[in-house]
């Protein structure tokens, strides 16, 4: 019987290793996490088995967590905006260039993807530090007299996150921009559109699917960020991610950590879902 199924559906055999991997080590842990969220949470004890909805109620009451959530949402706005602007410019430039220039720009874009987050955060720390790059320039140019530490604030967290989000967003936008038929822009020009009008009427609306995906990506990344803000921010810049890690690693309250994780998971998944629907909507013309 089983052999039959596999012979009839060959693809199943090929998908099987991945599906086993995902169901044992991805699906199961998340299901267990849901169960964990109903255990009794006791700080420094990881968890005590049982059943309670107290963790969820605590989340509803927990003013501190609410402020962290709000803060992370606030953080995501400038990150999304800045990343999209920079990424769009870069992607546009790449899509308009060819040969060696295009190669170099793509390499520059992609290369940071594999540099780990700690290194990126650390290097920005060095740049913002009291005796770091920026202070060096500012003092030498006589703009300020005494070096002052510039890091550990809202701006440094934003910059670090933008840096991390850029490569993926550029690539997403690039794939959309590369697929715009250049004769559409020529047609617009032919019909009397200026360069600016061509951009506003044709290029920009046609890259909307990429913009939506890119924005969703930046949002998800910021909401779940943990390494970057814990290096580049002060305690004031604690994101919800840091708080979750804190519950799990330091406070050792796994059930409450689970609840927060589930909340975050809901936020990120629904964002991706909505962005997907929106993208399909805006790109309904892309399907033949």
């Amino acid at each position: 019987m089983k052999v039959n199924v596999f012979q009839k559906h060959r693809y199943l055999v090929l998908y099987l290793p991945a599906l086993i991997l995902f169901s044992v080590f991805f699906l199961t842990p998340f299901v267990l996490m849901i169960r964990m969220s109903f255990f009794i949470g006791k700080p420094l004890h990881c968890y005590i088995e049982g059943f309670t909805i107290e963790n969820y109620l605590r989340f509803l009451r927990d003013f501190y967590v609410h402020t962290r959530l709000m803060f992370t949402l606030q953080l995501s706005a400038p990150v999304i905006f800045l990343t999209l602007v920079l990424a769009y410019i870069m992607a546009y430039a790449i899509s308009r260039s060819s040969g060696i220039k295009r190669l170099i720009l793509i390499c520059v874009t992609i290369f940071p993807i594999w540099i780990n987050l700690v290194v990126i955060a650390f290097s920005w720390q060095v740049i913002f530090a009291r005796y770091g790059l920026i202070n060096f320039f500012l003092t030498n140019l006589g703009i300020i007299d005494e070096p002052t530490p510039l890091g550990y604030n809202f701006l440094s967290v934003v910059i670090g996150l933008v840096h991390v989000c850029l490569p993926y967003t550029i690539l997403t936008l690039l794939s959309v921009l590369d697929n715009i038929d250049p004769t559409l822009e020529e047609a617009a020009k032919d019909l009397g559109a200026t360069k600016f009008k061509i951009f506003v009427e044709v290029t920009l609306p046609m890259s909307m699917p990429g913009i939506i995906t890119g924005a969703a990506f930046c949002f998800v990344w910021t909401m779940s960020s943990f390494v970057i803000p814990s290096f580049l921010g002060s305690p004031l810049q604690k994101t919800i991610g840091i708080e979750i890690a804190n519950q799990v690693l330091t406070a050792l309250n796994w059930p409450y950590g689970s609840v927060l994780s589930i909340v975050l998971l809901c936020i990120t998944s629904s964002t991706l879902l909505i962005s997907n629907i929106l993208r399909e909507r805006t790109a309904r013309w892309a399907k033949q």
Binding site: A187, D190, T282
Partner: peptide
Amino acid sequence: VPAHKRDVCMVFQRLALFPH
């Protein structure tokens, strides 16, 4: 004179209708 200021219009090979 740039294209957008010329009194000519083109029907393109692949039509180039704006899909959006």
